[in-house]
Design a protein around this nucleic acid. Structure first.
Length: 884
RNA sequence: GGAAGCAUAGCUCAGUUGGUUAGAGCACUUGCUUGACAUGCAAGGGGUCACUGGUUCAAGUCCAGUUGUUUCCACCA
């Protein structure tokens, strides 16, 4: 049913209604037609704790554009949505909520905690999904997944067991990053470093034999409680005789050796380093090399252990003060320097990370990284833009083993079981705790959970049915085609999906990775909660509509680059939507109720042929940009074509054919014009639809249908380039008239002649076929002419002369014309013209250019020269006429 | 410490594989209620494409260096 368009564009009137219609008609589901090629995107699953922010809006707009484009291009498209359990982020949220009730995790216990977590997921997990719908996302909601749903959990267990059996997962005591606030290990990638002003304390450790002391420098004096050696560089002459001696650790009294290790930088501090294997990753390595004992002096919440009664229970910073004071009192502190250094913090809570030795699970990365590097190197997987491949290679080539265990409750439990009675450990997919195979005793599951990225690494195939190799979706839609994500997540997620997919499915997870930037505010700052400069996309949608938001996010941007978001941009987007809306109203106003026909060349006028030619060119360039993921370029091409070509020119050029004053226009002519308007408008709507789905659908549904189109634009075919609708000669003729109109307007504006003052135009031209009667209405409507007449030479003295490459136009203006000024103007123009001619002549007489440049380029330059020479002749004639 | 990006009009940015006189939006100036749109129309001003050198018939575009700036990675106590 066709609808009348209201006078003003008001997106709130129709966006929700249209989205509901799409859902009802199941347009988001992939076509059942298995002969169609497939195109698949899996969504980067937002956290269930998440609220839609601008980053999501951009990320999902890009995906929706690609999916809608491919759908119209005839692919069976699947955009698979879902959410991530986000173990540490969600757990932190729930802990926070419980704290408000005065409860801790330990108070409620694991079972109750998980019950709360699932409740929380039920309550808020769907929130971001609803917000994605507001944006217009055309996901297949029936296939929505969750990283902790049954299928994904099965995949996680499968992967863990297979890696373990292959020897690629191991358990070991290592030093890891520990967050004393979240009380869990975190991976290297989860540590953020920030500059902090600190101090370098110089401490004296006396030799046991009483021969003085060695001076060490440290930024963390409290860790001295765990020192098990002092290290110096083996090549350091200052300490040549000291290696092998024993020092007595102040405050503690422990006897520790002085050792030599290359790790020590002679230039830094005093050249002597205290070694604390339990609380520093480098010291841990030194400790392993020298078989040093590991002495832990801090608890998991970063308090001093009971082994040191004087400081027991003190927080690490409190202990630092006390220890420094005590050392000073006893004369072991010689100097305190200011020292800026980088401190690792937890990416979740910003607490300073405490390196800590503990038993953790790791993935051995090197064997997995290798094929993942090859896949990108050989172009099996491409990054867009390509430069991000460098980041990827750097990370993958220097990869370290991945700590995957987390001391959290919310997440996938590690499928390892330990015997209570003996030390037996079993790794199994089974949900039942096995009996110990050695002693038959009870076994208990490892209490830890897996890093949240462990399950998201499997997302492209676990969501399609893996590990069931024969799952229908997996067979039909895997490997997926494009992954869309921001550059800050390449290491966390993209790289892990690649090696996981290659290892477990033997195929790449996706062929292209489209990287986008971050959204910044109008001043270029990152949007963040703490700065309070975040813009809520839902507010924008409410105020301006989802289409305007999408337009503002995409326009003027290229892959991988950050985007500044500002009120001006969103305002410009809405204005464009309004422009399109009104252009559509104009077309509708003039349209009969007929179906839109494919244009028939025999009925077309020169202006129709011109717009169709320009339209076909637009299809070619827009499609090419879409295929290259240059979505910003594609959109600006659509914008320019819509506004500058279609609205500003063709609609105006069509008016003489539509406004049939005294029956001068034939029904055939009027039909061709109306049909051309509707045909081109429909094409614009289709090309714009992936970017602005709502307004294009709303307008489309109010237009008569084009042959072969569906009732919804989103499942209509995308325009394809048709050479039969290009008419280069006619288009060129029309351009010449347009040039002349522009030149007349410019001169009139220059002379401050109001539009209302009409004047007859005399046109001297070698192309009377173009500038004859057919062109008259255009000059009358668009160049303030009262009429036009072809002439040969100056029609009367004191006429303004306007010179274009195809014609010289005279406007008799009587006294209005200042002869002296006119002469001056002609001379200036002639001078400009002469400059151009000289430049071109020089270029064309350059033998290197003629012989080496492509023929087409040379030809183009020749044509230009010819055109300029013609203008020169016309200008000279005009000047002569003026003087004579 | 290592790496990458960016530097183009007053502002925000486009500018494909080198090939017209370097573009757009906003802002600015001037004139217009022209039968879809004043959320509009028309005309205009404004740029030594950061700097230096190189390759080329030809450089905003490719190469090297310099300066400024942003980001990522590493984490020497």
């Amino acid at each position: 049913m066709r609808r009348e368009l209201p006078k003003t564009y008001n997106p709130a009137d129709f966006e929700d209604r249209i989205y509901a219609e799409w859902c009802e008609n199941k347009y988001f589901k992939p076509s059942d037609d298995t002969t169609k090629p497939t195109y698949t995107i899996v969504i980067p699953p937002p956290n269930i704790t998440g609220q839609l922010h601008m980053g999501h809006a951009l990320n999902n707009t890009l995906q929706d554009i690609l999916i809608r484009y491919k759908r119209m291009k005839g692919f069976a498209t699947l955009w698979l949505p879902g959410t991530d359990h986000a173990s540490i982020a969600t757990e932190a949220k729930i802990v926070e909520v419980m704290r408000e009730e005065g409860l801790t995790k330990d108070d409620v216990g694991r079972e109750e905690f998980l019950r709360r977590a699932w409740d929380w997921r039920k309550k808020y997990g769907g929130r971001i999904i609803e917000q994605l719908k507001k944006l217009g996302s055309s996901c297949d909601w029936d296939r929505e997944r969750f990283t902790m749903d049954e299928g994904c959990s099965r995949a996680v267990k499968e992967v863990f067991v297979r890696l373990y059996e292959k020897g690629l997962i191991y358990r070991g005591e290592r030093i890891i990053n520990w967050c004393p606030h979240c009380k869990t290990s975190i991976s290297d990638a989860e540590v953020d470093y920030e500059d902090q002003a600190g101090h370098l304390w110089h401490l004296h450790y006396p030799y046991k034999d009483g021969s003085g002391y060695v001076e060490v420098a440290t930024t963390r004096p409290e860790t001295m409680l765990g020192d098990t050696a002092v290290a110096v560089n083996p090549n350091d002459p200052r300490y040549a005789g000291c290696v092998g001696k024993t020092v007595i650790l102040p405050l503690v009294g422990r006897e520790i050796p002085v050792i030599a290790d290359e790790y020590v930088d002679m230039e830094f501090g005093t050249g002597a380093v205290k070694i604390t294997p339990a609380h520093d990753p480098n010291d841990f390595e030194v400790g392993r090399r020298h078989n040093l004992p590991i002495v832990t002096c801090m608890t998991e919440d970063a308090k001093i252990t009971d082994d040191y009664p004087a400081y027991a229970g003190m927080d690490r910073y409190e202990a630092r003060k006390k220890i420094v004071a005590d050392l000073e009192k006893l004369g072991f502190l010689s100097e305190v320097e200011d020292h800026a250094h980088n401190v690792g913090t937890c990416y979740r809570c910003k607490t300073t990370v405490e390196p800590r030795v503990s038993m953790q699970w790791f993935v051995k990365m090197e064997p997995l990284a290798k094929p993942a590097i090859e896949a990108v190197r050989h172009g099996e997987i491409k990054f867009i833009p390509e430069r991000f491949e460098k980041n990827y290679f750097y990370w993958m080539e220097n990869i370290r083993d991945w700590c995957i265990s987390r001391q959290l409750w919310w997440g996938h439990k590690i499928p390892a079981y330990y015997c209570d009675a003996c030390d037996k450990m079993v790794v199994t997919k089974s949900d039942e705790a096995p009996r110990c195979s050695s002693c038959g005793g009870e076994m208990r599951q490892d209490p830890d959970t897996l890093d949240t990225w462990f399950s998201s690494a499997l997302w492209p195939f676990s969501t399609l049915g893996w590990p069931d190799e024969n799952a229908e979706d997996l067979r039909r839609f895997y490997p997926t085609n494009t992954l869309v994500t921001a550059y800050d997540i390449i290491t966390f997620w993209v790289s892990r999906m690649i090696f996981s997919a290659l290892e477990f499915t033997g195929k790449r997870p996706f062929e292209n990775v489209l990287i986008h930037g971050l959204i910044r505010d109008a001043e270029g700052r990152k949007m963040s909660k703490s700065l309070g400069n975040g813009v809520d996309p839902l507010e924008i949608i409410e105020k301006y509509g989802a289409d305007a938001l999408r337009f503002a996010l995409i326009t003027g941007n290229s892959p991988g680059n950050d985007i500044r978001f500002s009120d001006e941009k969103i305002e410009a987007a809405r204005i464009f939507a309004n422009k399109l809306w009104n252009a559509a109203r104009f077309v509708l106003m003039n349209l009969d109720n007929n179906e839109i026909k494919y244009p028939d060349a025999s009925t077309l006028s020169v202006e129709d042929k011109w717009i169709l030619t320009r339209y076909e060119e637009a299809i070619a360039s827009i499609t090419s940009a879409m295929e290259r993921y240059e979505l910003g370029v594609a959109l600006s091409n659509i914008y320019d074509f819509t506004w500058d070509v279609f609205c500003d020119w063709y609609i105006e050029l069509s008016k003489p054919s539509l406004m049939n004053k005294d029956g001068a226009v034939s029904p055939q002519r009027s039909f061709a014009a109306k049909n051309t308007l509707a045909f081109v408008l429909t094409g614009i709507l289709k090309m714009l639809h992936p970017f602005m789905p709502f307004i294009t659908e709303e307008i489309y549904q109010s237009l008569p249908r084009q042959e072969g189109d569906s009732k919804s634009i989103m499942v209509s075919p995308y325009p394809t380039y048709d050479e039969a609708l290009t008419f280069s000669d006619d288009a060129e003729s029309m351009e010449k008239v347009i040039d002349a109109i522009k030149a007349v307007r410019a001169r009139r504006a220059e002379m401050n002649v109001p539009v209302s003052s009409k004047a007859k135009l005399y046109i001297e031209t070698k192309r009377p076929d173009i500038f004859g009667a057919a062109a008259e209405p255009f000059f009358m409507r668009l160049a303030s002419a009262s009429g036009t007449q072809l002439c040969d030479g100056v029609p009367e003295a004191n006429a303004v002369r306007i010179v274009t490459s195809a014609a010289t136009i005279y406007i008799p203006m009587g006294e209005l014309v200042d002869l002296a000024a006119e002469k001056k103007r002609l001379l200036t123009e002639l001078e400009k013209n002469a400059g151009e001619i000289e430049r071109l002549e020089r270029k064309l007489s350059n033998e290197g250019f003629i012989s080496k440049a492509p023929a087409a380029v040379v030809e183009g330059e020749r044509a230009k020269l010819k055109k300029h020479r013609e203008v020169k002749a016309a200008l000279e004639a005009a000047l002569k006429a003026l003087e004579g």
